[in-house]
Design a protein around this nucleic acid. Structure first.
Lengths: 233, 233
DNA sequence: TAGTGGTCTAGACCACCCG
DNA sequence: GGGTGGTCTAGACCACTAG
């Protein structure tokens, strides 16, 4: 066994990655245990552990106590992507950010939304519709329901100046959320707000944000035609 | 200072999370340094480090040497999502998986694809079109270009039985890739393969896979209407 | 039950970078 | 310059689980 000196976990990770890419360790195979690798690499076991744990997190290795570490069969199963913070997304692409409040009304939400927010019948919530612009052209339509418990009468006045998203992020703590991506067909209303043809294919993001199982807000973002979301593996 | 005993990094992380959710430490604020927290929690600094590093990775904290650790202003900016392995996605939802090869031909790719794959003019690549079915109904249309260097004449015969994706994952190592999500309008051809109306909004994933800067394959997956991709923060 | 990964500790040194 | 996070080390004990 050639003995090398890799004295930080990044270099250990690189070496392991190289062996995976070279198929020296093949998918499904068992690789040597941490103690042996530590000796071969000339470093502490904790250093090897850090490297292998990182690769396991990325989905390239499967680790189990006693069973050892195996090369994952499906090398990459996860992608991490930025959740767009609309204002940043627009300004960082060099465009000028603009914001139009369309409406902000208290009313009883439709039944599916009431159920999601666990509101009784007749209970009202705040419904906000607004448009974010890039260089004065519509960029995304925001259609949001907010649980009234989280926003007082004073705050909602501000929504003519700052977007509810920006306000919520800064003022309401949350513990969990879920996101869904889909393709939808532009309705008449959507096409009007986004200045596109009805029936056009639009990219939509639905996001629900919770604080300890209670829904704070649920939003649909409908993007202008041509929007893409990119990420790297 | 109340002194507690948190002797593993998960409990340290929970405690820190609780303070963040309770707004005890507010967005933008500096939190105590690792040594102080270690003393307060009654554990080693390395344990605090592990917890804080994990929270920083998740986007909840911003850490800088000398500057210290701050609560992130935009609490969550990343979502990690499963890259669907089509066959698994279909079978794990309880449906029967099926596969139809439409065509597999060597031909010169269109210019944008040739450029992406860095092929000279007139150089051919393998173009595969196939459909994956769930319970005999079209689920996703796969339109793929494969660099001929990576697939010999023998292998391509197999594509009538197993999908090129499955074959590539098992046989060709890759080092990097990128993915894009978008909404497209169904063309005549797409609508035919997916049994939907032309003009319908469809969810599309474009994926390019590389081995050391050389493109192995580039694929567009076009999903049948109604497809959604879900993830949790 | 024995082998493997998961983690903690105490101490140390280093890299970075704010003031 | 000095305080902060980033990491390594050696040793130890524990938790899990395959055989």
């Amino acid at each position: 066994m050639t003995r090398m000196t890799l004295n930080n976990w990044q270099s250990v990770q690189s070496e392991v990655l190289a062996r995976l890419h070279a198929r020296e360790w093949k998918p499904g195979e068992l690789i040597p245990n941490e103690a042996d690798l530590a000796e071969e690499f000339g470093c502490a076991r904790a250093t090897v552990n850090r490297a292998l744990q990182n690769l396991a997190e990325e989905g390239l290795l499967d680790r189990k106590r006693k069973a050892g570490t195996r090369v994952a069969i499906h090398p990459v199963r996860r992608a991490t992507m930025r959740i767009p913070v609309i204002r940043d997304e627009i300004t960082s692409s060099g465009s000028m950010y603009g914001y139009n409040l369309i409406s902000a009304l208290d009313c009883a939400p439709p039944s599916n939304m009431a159920e999601l927010m666990r509101l009784g019948p007749e209970v009202q919530a705040l419904h906000v519709i607004c448009v974010h612009n890039a260089d004065k052209k519509p960029y995304v339509l925001e259609d949001r329901w907010i649980n009234s418990d989280w926003v007082g009468p004073d705050e909602r006045l501000q929504f003519s100046d700052i977007s509810p998203n920006q306000w919520l992020v800064a003022n309401v703590p949350f513990t969990a959320g879920d996101i869904a991506f889909s393709a939808i067909t532009a309705s008449i209303a959507e096409s009007k707000f986004l200045s596109c043809a009805p029936g056009q294919a639009l990219f939509a993001i639905d996001r629900t944000t919770r604080n300890k199982e209670r829904v704070i807000t649920s939003v649909r973002l409908t993007f202008a035609p041509g929007y893409r979301i990119n990420t790297v593996i």
